[in-house]
Design a protein around this nucleic acid. Structure first.
Lengths: 399, 399
DNA sequence: GGCAATTTGTTTGTTGACTTTACAAACTAT
DNA sequence: ATAGTTTGTAAAGTCAACAAACAAATTGCC
């Protein structure tokens, strides 16, 4: 297993006793979360810490209620170990993802197990309507989990737009038609716990990273639906960028002097490689109705003759953009969350082959995978982000 | 001043006493390097450490020879402080930058002051010839600085290509025509100190960051000469990328179905926005000789009519690529090292204006500057990188 | 000049988290 | 039953940071 670096949330501290303790606690919680059930002895071996240190830290974590003993385990020889585990039932996080059609909601326990997963349609997506829906969902969850030690300890919200992590306002969401919405301020009034608001692609990246390659230090995730967004782990940490605006790869120029984009630029990737662009191209190709998201997948699965060119162009533009990202950022793994590619293995293979032939040589070490999470990725990532914050709190605040 | 995060080279350690000490030493050396002369008391105030802790650490650093007392300073009231400073003369680093025409060499003392700066022309640039030249330069420097406590403690080498930071081999340099050269292995035989080999754009980025905006956490530097390379500080740390191949922005696709690039891709930015591309375009425009690097600058400074279109296209392609980088990476500052733009303030202004009008809204907070270092940036950055490694050694090894 | 106030830097002793050493408990194999 | 092994705890030791007290040096005011 990859050795944990000293986490960023411990930055800006001096080297005193509390730092030692926090670093070691972070290390132990990391191992417990990654490995699942394990004993004090194996934690000591894997962490490099002394047995005694592990025992005393674990005693405190059990006292806190976040770790529990789950009985004795097996052993080849000698005394049987007392197995430990994160106490999932200690508390719960909610992950929400806002789209134009509704709210994806995921409830996750402290151990990362998904407890439930829902979709709530909403008619209008004004900030008020969305906040109302979120408040109602939150209230229900708070009630449902009130018996847990930490109850509903946090909410993560995935927004298709840019969020200033300082003020936590939604700076802009073209998809929802929002501009400078003091989203979390309103929510903080009704929910006192952890509130993490983030870009949907960034949060989806957290989920894909956790499930696909938690050990990959340089990891990029592409979210291709109406537009194209991305997120990245860099040097082992999720990256928000200046003002939380990292990852608007949909507005990279891929066609010089190309179509005019509402963003102000011309020839943006969004206008050629997104599902929206593809649907429009398909509509033009058959000289009729633009297919909706559902029909799109049917067409992708077995493309009729008239659609071949549109699909093939789509693949071409995807390759262009992906090659740009690979060459510029040199990730060790790239995960693509795209319903069309998931529906058509042939198209995904074409993308992989195209990228392999056109990207710089190092590509042979950059694996490209399809997401297995689909539309729920941002909500799952949002819950994970809230959960991560919760554990940070256990490390930073509880000495 | 920005508070130092816990440095990455301390990752992978457990929280014991040595970590505390290392963190505090890193903090103190950081302050001493950034602030210049200062007293124990002011270090205590700025670091948040106890006076006693500062005094004992400083005593060890003075014992090591890397810090010195430089006499008493001024004070408004009370006892006058004993001023401290990094002992520059304690040791020296050499920074070298390999180009097709020769070797830029910079000698830098431990405090970061440039002691000398030279250029050694070389006729051929085979690995053997270059290594010979480097060995000779190194030998001289070693002799020159032999009286210093740490002598010539390190060398940094900037290579126009990709370097695997694990094996430290030059994976590929298109410009030099090198492939898989075990460069540092050969050098390590004749020089036992710190040997840092890196990509030229990455190392130039270190120099530009240090001198332009050391406090910028998200910083991108573009190096535009024969090709286009880049480097970036992300989350406050220079980023090498998987296999050290981050930053090949010259091979982002900016023209769909564009010119075929030797790299395997088509429509690469390199083929449209580099100085080489510009010189070729100028040659075509006047239907005659391709201008050399020197003439290029004369033309840029006062462009004749026949050259206008070529220059204007060049600016256009630069804008395209820069907008892509800004939107994808969201840096808070971008420095451009490009002789043509330095020669023509008007063109630079046109680039800035174009980017401002085409990049996403957050751009108003991303300042764009021209490099003040020019061709020596990679060599200076190489020396800085070696020097940084030296200080890391003082922190990690000397308990 | 003498004394209070202030700032710098050191001396002395305390604290706390980790480590080492020793040991008890529990288990397997012979 | 006994030896050997592994797990986990208890007691004692270590070390770097911290806190309090103090010495040294300087300014300002009477």
């Amino acid at each position: 297993m990859k050795r944990l670096g000293i986490p960023q949330y411990l930055d800006g501290r001096t080297g005193d006793k509390t730092l030692s303790k926090a670093v070691n606690r972070a290390l132990l919680l990391h191992l417990l979360r990654e490995k699942g059930a394990c004993s004090r002895a194996s934690l000591a071996k894997d962490s490099g810490l002394n047995k005694v240190t592990v025992s005393s830290q674990i005693a405190e974590l059990i006292e806190l209620g976040i770790v529990k003993e789950i009985g004795v385990g097996a052993s080849e020889l000698g005394r049987k170990p007392i197995m430990l585990e994160i106490a999932g039932e200690a508390g719960y996080a909610l992950g929400l993802s806002i789209s134009t059609t509704g709210l994806f909601v995921v409830a996750m326990d402290a151990a990362g197990k998904i407890d439930r997963s829902d979709f709530f349609p909403i008619e209008v997506h004004t900030p008020e309507a969305v906040i109302d829906a979120i408040v109602s969902v939150t209230r229900n969850a708070k009630r449902r989990y009130r018996q847990a030690k930490f109850g509903l300890f946090g909410i993560g919200i995935a927004v298709p737009g840019t969020i200033d992590q300082g003020t936590r306002r939604v700076v802009c969401s073209a998809k929802l038609g929002w501009e400078d919405v003091p989203f979390s301020e309103d929510l903080a009034k009704v929910f006192g716990g952890i509130l993490h608001v983030g870009n949907d692609a960034t949060l989806a990246t957290i989920a894909e990273h956790e499930l696909n390659a938690p050990e990959a230090d340089d990891f990029v995730c592409l979210l291709i639906d109406e537009g194209i967004g991305s997120g990245a782990y860099i040097n082992g940490a999720i990256h928000y960028g200046h003002n939380g605006q990292f990852g608007e790869v949909g507005h990279m120029t891929v066609v010089h002097d190309g179509l005019r984009c509402p963003c102000g630029n011309t020839g943006c990737w969004d206008l050629y490689g997104s599902e929206l662009a593809l649907r429009q191209a398909l509509g033009t190709a058959r000289g009729g109705k633009i297919p909706d998201a559902e029909e799109l997948l049917t067409l992708a699965a077995s493309p009729p003759d008239w659609s071949q060119e549109a699909f093939s162009n789509f693949v071409d533009y995807l390759i262009s953009g992906i090659v740009s990202i690979m060459n510029a950022m040199a990730p060790s793994m790239l995960v693509i969350n795209c319903a069309v590619l998931s529906a058509s293995p042939a198209m995904f293979e074409a993308v992989k082959a195209g990228v392999a032939s056109r990207a710089l040589a190092h590509t042979h070490v950059c694996e490209i995978r399809l997401s297995s999470l689909g539309k729920t990725a941002p909500a799952i990532g949002a819950a994970m982000a809230a959960k991560d914050r919760f554990f940070e709190g256990l490390i930073v605040n509880e000495t």
